[in-house]
Each structure stands twice: as C-alpha cells, then as structure tokens.
Design a protein around this nucleic acid. Sequence first.
DNA 1: ATGTAAAATGAAATGATTACAAAAATAGTC
DNA 2: GACTATTTTTGTAATCATTTCATTTTACAT
Lengths: 139, 139
Amino acid sequence: MEQQQISTYLLKSGIRPLQKRVKIMSYLVSKRNHPTVDMIYSDLIHEINGLSKTTIYNVLNLFVQSGVALALNIEGNEVRYDADTSTHGHFKCKICSGVIDFRIKQEELPNPMLDGFRIDEHHYYLKGVCSFCANKIEA
Amino acid sequence: MEQQQISTYLLKSGIRPLQKRVKIMSYLVSKRNHPTVDMIYSDLIHEINGLSKTTIYNVLNLFVQSGVALALNIEGNEVRYDADTSTHGHFKCKICSGVIDFRIKQEELPNPMLDGFRIDEHHYYLKGVCSFCANKIEA
DNA sequence: ATGTAAAATGAAATGATTACAAAAATAGTC
DNA sequence: GACTATTTTTGTAATCATTTCATTTTACAT
C-alpha cells in the first residue's frame, strides 16, 4: 500500500496521519510479520531519523485504541502487533518463534452462551511446531 | 478436592507432591479464579509460613511444563494460571478484570488447514464487558 | 541419625513498558 | 511567511513482572 493510501486510511479512522505514524503503519501492513516493538524499532531506526522506542509504544497504543491494529498476547513475555483487524487466527511456532495467520470466518468461531455479556474481541491462538521446523527435526 | 487427592494427582503427573506444591495446586483447584502470581502470593502468604514469590514462579512453571496447569496470556501485562487443562475458553472483562471460563468442545474449535504443522495448544480468548459490569454501566 | 540430591529462599539482574518533563513538530491565524 | 497554541516526540528515570543465582533449607533413602 502506498503511503498516501495509508494516510487516508488513518485519517478515516480518526488518526492524524503524521509521518512516523504513517511509516509505522506502512511497516505493519507491508511486512505482515506480527512484530514486537523491538522488531519494529530495529527495522525502522535506519529509515526514520531519530526514532525512539517510546514513540513506537505511543503510536501502537494509539493504533490499538483506534481499532486499526490488534495487540496479540500469544506469549506472556511479548506483545505482537497486527494491522490486519479482520477475523483470523494465529499460530505460533515454539521452535522458530514465528507467528503466522490462518483464515477463519467469524461464524466458525464458537459463540458461547454468555447472557448479557458484550463481546468486543475474539482471539484464537494455536501453538505448536510449524511444518518447516517439524521437517528439520525429522531430518 | 482433598490435599490427599491433589498429592495423588501430582504424583501421577510426575510431580513430587511437596507441601508447597500441594498447597498451590489446591489453591488453584479450589478457587478457580485464574489468579496471577501476585494474587496467589497475597492469598497464600498468610497460610504458608515463609512463602516466597520465587517459589510460586518455580512451582507454576513446573506445573505448566508438566501439563497440570495452563498459562493464560490474555493481557500482555499479566500471566494467569488455570488448573483446568480441559478444552475451554476464557472471557476477560475489561471493567472488573475478572476472567471466567466457558465450555466449548474441542470439535467446535475450527481446525485450520495447516499441513505438516503439529498443534499442541488451543487458546480461545474473548474480551469485552461481563453482564454484571454491563448492568452497572446502564444503571 | 547422616549424607545427598532436590527445592525454596532472597537479593540482584533483566527486560518490557510506562510516566513525565522538556524539546520539537504541526496546524491554524494573522 | 512569521507567530502562537496545541499536539507529538523524545530521552531518562521509574515501575513492574519475571528470571538468575548462590545460599540455605528440606526431603528422603541408607
């Protein structure tokens, strides 16, 4: 996606499309790697002059509050971010630590009987070993 | 559950049923409140003489590794523990921070096409506002 | 009882995240 | 284009959960 499109998207979501915000969203959208704050920082520090980690925290928190990004809490010691806010699941490999998406429809997810509850977010996480790592183990 | 039953259960799971381990498991099983380490510590410090937080971390890590407890990563800043290792979902209320279980069958959870992947754990988390807090807001 | 291995302890280290005050950038107005 | 008020970014320090590690204590078999 072009930076211009990102700007429009952010604006539409009630977020002023400032330079760093656009770059960070652009990174999330293009890489789709469910990065941690550290990953974003190490990748963008070269590209954005004088970027601070605090800014990344600020911007990501803003994104999550505004609903343009999801915070994934798959593992206790790290938060990962995802610009894809549509319904989908996540698989995390214990070996390579990679996180991949898998498609599921909203209707496929069970809807428990929770009378009077307001449900805002659905998170479906799987953990195990990905096919690539599984092959390496066998070999 | 009686402490005796807990001991037998731990033993069967390959865990030596030492005093503190039994007490901590007993706490998890009886309270079913998905506690954090801090909650366990503040509740058991009165009951167990000279209990240290490090011990709770040690014991819980052992429980998780041995498969007699689950570590829930619903929110990024806290890990909660659950002695119920059967398939079920968790709902966390944004207002009161309470976590409740809901029953789902293994078969109800979607099984994505992940060829060659080994899936070890399924986590299904919902977030929103529980009925109790929703009522309070309306009132 | 005694010795050995396992477990628990507490203090210090680590790592992620937040708070906060100062500096910089931005948008709107003249 | 310059001026000012407001918002954003920055960097440091503070906070909080968790782990590490050396030491002490406990459990258990002999």
